[in-house]
Amino acid sequence: MTRKQKRLAIISGGVAVIGAAVLLVLFALQDQIVYFHSPTDIVEKQIGPDTRIRLGGLVAEKSVVRGTGTKVEFVVTDTANEVAITYTGILPDLFREGQGVIVEGAFEPGNPVFVADSVLAKHDENYMPKEVAESLKAQGVWQGEEK
């Protein structure tokens, strides 16, 4: 092989790999990303069932109900609107009523209850999930400790 051919072989190999990667990324970005919504968004935008979303807000006071076994029901609110959640599993340490939380999951068809498969609370007492803080600010509820 001449020098030119060698170079061509290497470059075309490179282009093939990068092209494949770009295709994969584009495909994955179409299908595998999850949008964040506040309860108000849910009411306004009419999210269809089986679409995976993240939902953030405050856990409504006195809304946490333990069902049988490890099933838990609670309500997430941004003070303007509310969404009922069911979740089966262990809640994070800092999950509390009146505190910020993000749940991920989907609505079931024909059921207004959001079925979460993961629940994220904060890592320490100073931390409010950023998305939640912003959507609460939008509702004028929360004034963060901004400097």
Partner: peptide, 18 residues
């Protein structure tokens, strides 16, 4: 202004095959 999260499924699908 849209808020999204890119989680493990994205990386498993792109990083894995590479």
């Amino acid at each position: 202004g849209a808020k999204i999260s890119v989680g493990p499924p994205f990386f498993n699908l792109t990083f894995g095959p590479l």
